[in-house]
Simulated scan of single mutants.
Amino acid sequence: MNMASNIKSTTTSIASDLKPTGIKLFFKKLVQQRILVLMSVPFLIWLFLFKYLPLWGWTTAFQKYRPAKSFSEQEWVGLDQFKFLFQDERFLRVLRNTLAQSGINLALGFITAIILALLLNELRGMIFKRVVQTVTYMPHFLSWVVAAGIIQATLAPDGIINMLMIKLGMIEKGQEILFLGIPKDFWTILGLGTVWKDLGWNTIVYLAAMATIDPAQYEAAEMDGAGRFRRMWNVTLPGIKSVIVVLLILNIGNLMESGFEAQYLLKNGMNIDYSENIDIFVLTYGINQSNFSLAVAAGMFKSLVSIVLLFIANNIAKRAGESRLF
């Protein structure tokens, strides 16, 4: 019996030694999955051409770039463009605005999307549920040109908000408020406008995650006497926790991407100190004034900070034992 077990273990060890490892295993899997590899080639080509090859342009940030000159004729200035950025009050202001706008959009958009998904998941009337989903999805398909026009018309002195305030006696006629002319209110208006436009669309992933939760868990919780809100707290939220963490990491990585269209369309001379972000700064003080090196330096800074934030958020999730990107 011992001899048979020894022979079996020896055979198993020999077989494991014969299994390909390292580079051989890689090429073996590559051959086995050759169809998938071939299908991914067009995407990899697109990724290289439009995402990685343009990184060569980052060299412009270290030059005093002049379009008429060749690469070898450009004047190299080192970190001068970055030094200028961090000594410029305008850039520090737009950096503050970018982080504030992104933070407000993240907080409002993230929380409201989860709450709406939880409420939609609890609806039992399918017709009403579909109507609510359709109504909340529709603004996402509007361009920001149309959405900004709606927001401006709503907040105008003769808009519905001022009319409602007059009807309720909150203000008198002739004392209408120009909301977009109040600088410190711009961040709130932008945050609420972004929530209105993207709320329904942001719930799709959460609703899909909720659909994968085992119904037996809800039945067990109901048998234990848990009410509807208790089931949402103890069953639904834990069931989608991994999705919430991954999306939170991605959103933190995009904190430097506060948008462009909404700010550009809603800004005016009165609120510019709070509406102008890095993207508008790049357009106004970089491209429009032909200072391409400054524009590239600002964009490069934004990208590098986004990468750092992504790794920090992912590492925090890893240390906390939560789901993560990598």
Results as ranks from 00 to 15, higher is better:
Gly57Ile: 05
Thr59Glu: 07
Arg34Tyr: 10
Leu47Trp: 14
Pro67Asn: 04
Leu47Gly: 06
Gln32Gly: 13
Ala68Thr: 12
Phe71His: 07
Leu53Phe: 13
Phe27Asp: 12
Gln63Trp: 03
Leu49Glu: 08
Phe71Cys: 02
Gln33Lys: 15
Lys51Phe: 04
Leu38Met: 10
Lys29Thr: 05
Ala61Met: 05
Thr59Gly: 14
Glu73Ile: 02
Leu47Ile: 06
Leu30Ala: 12
Met39Ala: 01
Ile35Thr: 13
Met39Asp: 00
Gln63Leu: 07
Trp56Ser: 13
Gln74Met: 13
Phe43Gln: 09
Tyr65Thr: 01
Leu55Tyr: 11
Tyr52Leu: 14
Phe43Ser: 09
Gly57Arg: 10
Gly57Val: 07
Phe48Met: 09
Gln63Arg: 15
Pro54His: 12
Phe26Trp: 15
Phe50Gly: 08
Trp76Lys: 11
Val37Glu: 01
Phe62Asn: 02
Ser40His: 03
Leu44Gly: 03
Lys51Cys: 07
Val41Thr: 05
Tyr65Glu: 00
Phe62Cys: 08
Arg34Phe: 04
Thr60Gln: 04
Leu53Gln: 13
Leu36Met: 14
Val37Phe: 05
Met39Phe: 01
Pro42Trp: 01
Val41Gly: 02
Leu55Arg: 14
Trp46Thr: 05
Ala61Lys: 00
Ala68Gly: 07
Pro42Asn: 05
Leu53Thr: 03
Val31Leu: 13
Leu38Asp: 00
Leu49Pro: 02
Leu44Cys: 11
Phe43Lys: 07
Leu55Glu: 09
Phe62Leu: 14
Gln33Ser: 09
Glu73Ala: 11
Thr59Trp: 06
Ala68Asp: 12
Phe27Leu: 15
Pro67Gly: 03
Val31Pro: 01
Phe50His: 03
Gln33Ile: 04
Ala61His: 01
Phe50Ser: 08
Trp58Gln: 12
Phe50Arg: 04
Phe48Tyr: 12
Trp58Gly: 11
Phe27Cys: 08
Val31Cys: 07
Phe71Asn: 13
Ala61Glu: 00
Leu44Met: 15
Pro42Gln: 06
Glu73Trp: 02
Tyr52Met: 11
Met39Val: 00
Gln32Arg: 15
Lys69Phe: 08
Val41Lys: 01
Lys69Gly: 03
Lys51Asp: 08
Val31Ala: 12
Ile45Trp: 14
Phe43Asn: 08
Leu53Gly: 06
Phe48Leu: 13
Phe48Val: 11
Leu55Ala: 08
Phe71Tyr: 12
Ser70Tyr: 10
Lys28Ala: 10
Trp46Ile: 04
Lys28Thr: 09
Glu73Tyr: 03
Trp58Asp: 06
Phe26Ala: 07
Pro54Asp: 05
Gln33Pro: 06
Tyr65Ile: 01
Leu25Met: 12
Phe71Pro: 01
Glu75Lys: 11
Ser70Gly: 15
Lys69Pro: 06
Ser72Trp: 15
Phe43Arg: 09
